[in-house]
């Protein structure tokens, strides 16, 4: 359909496209190389960052100096329990909304959908008060539950459940299956793609969340990674090999997960269409 383009144009196209891509990667690559430089390393030109010698000494030193694994563990506990709870609570509710014809169903569904519009950032002051009254400040549930309250999963899964053929339910009923078995044995397996997308999305969002943990957690031992990492960032130290090592350690899990699941993550964004 298209005419052959000239070699110069083609070269230009490649140079611009890949040039921009490299600019996007450069800060991340730079972070990696800085973390591989030993503490006190003197740099006089840009290229010094990227040339050997390299060492992993910073990584050992960070691991000894800071409770970074504790923060990672906290982040992991918070993100994975939020993910599991979002999947289970949302899918249960979505199943009822999709399959059972109960009283107040439409009212309740619209009520749940309205929650999509509520920005949690504008709610943190009252949330702090409520979580404080429940005695949950500095606990995992404080970090997990507000994330689970977001109804996005319910809405997406209801769409998916609506597409499950209804004769499957009927034949399962004839075989004597109860509602829960139908949910668990038929609807959940048929919605794996949607569940995976929601799970990955929730995990990354919770893993990276800053404002709410910043308010709800004060003890260092309960810090998640996003709270612990900035305790190393100091705008005035000329030697930032250690902070960059902390950044690398904090980013590795997210980068690895992304590279593994990039297809699902990108698909997930397309059909959720929500941000931050």
């Amino acid at each position: 359909m298209k005419k052959e383009i000239s070699p110069t144009k083609k070269a230009l196209k490649y140079m611009v496209s890949y040039g921009i891509a490299v600019c996007f990667l450069l800060p991340i690559i730079w972070m990696l190389f800085v973390s591989l430089k030993s503490e006190g390393f003197r740099v006089s030109r840009i290229i010094d960052w990227f040339t050997p010698p390299y060492s992993l000494a910073n990584y050992f030193s960070v691991i000894q100096r800071a409770p970074i694994f504790r923060w990672m563990l906290n982040s992991f506990i918070v993100a994975s329990s939020a993910t599991l709870l979002v999947i289970f609570l949302s899918s249960l509710a979505a199943f009822a909304f999709s399959v059972i014809d109960f009283k107040f169903k439409n009212v309740l569904f619209v009520f749940a959908m309205a929650g999509l519009m509520v920005p949690t950032e504008a709610n943190v002051v009252a949330l702090f008060d409520i979580v404080g009254n429940l005695g949950l400040i500095n606990t995992y549930p404080a970090l997990v539950l507000p994330r689970v309250a977001i109804p996005l999963g319910v809405i997406i899964l209801k769409e998916f459940f609506d597409a499950v053929p209804r004769d499957l339910i009927d034949s399962a009923r004839i075989d004597g299956c109860g509602l829960f078995r139908i949910y668990w044995n038929i609807f959940m397996p048929l919605s794996k793609a949607a569940i995976a997308a929601i799970a990955i999305f929730t995990f990354i969002q919770t893993w990276n969340e800053f404002l709410w943990p910043f308010i709800a957690v004060m003890e260092q031992s309960m810090f998640t990674l996003p709270l612990g990492v900035p305790t190393f960032t100091d705008a005035y130290t000329p030697d930032y090999t250690i902070p960059m090592t902390v950044n690398m350690l904090a980013s590795l899990p997210a980068i690895v997960i992304f590279l593994f699941f990039q297809k699902q993550i990108i698909k997930g964004i397309k059909f959720t269409g929500i941000k931050g």
Partner: peptide, 12 residues
């Protein structure tokens, strides 16, 4: 390349 920064934490 264009999407990778999005998965990093705001702290990082």
């Amino acid at each position: 390349s264009f999407f990778l920064p999005y998965v990093l934490s705001v702290a990082v």
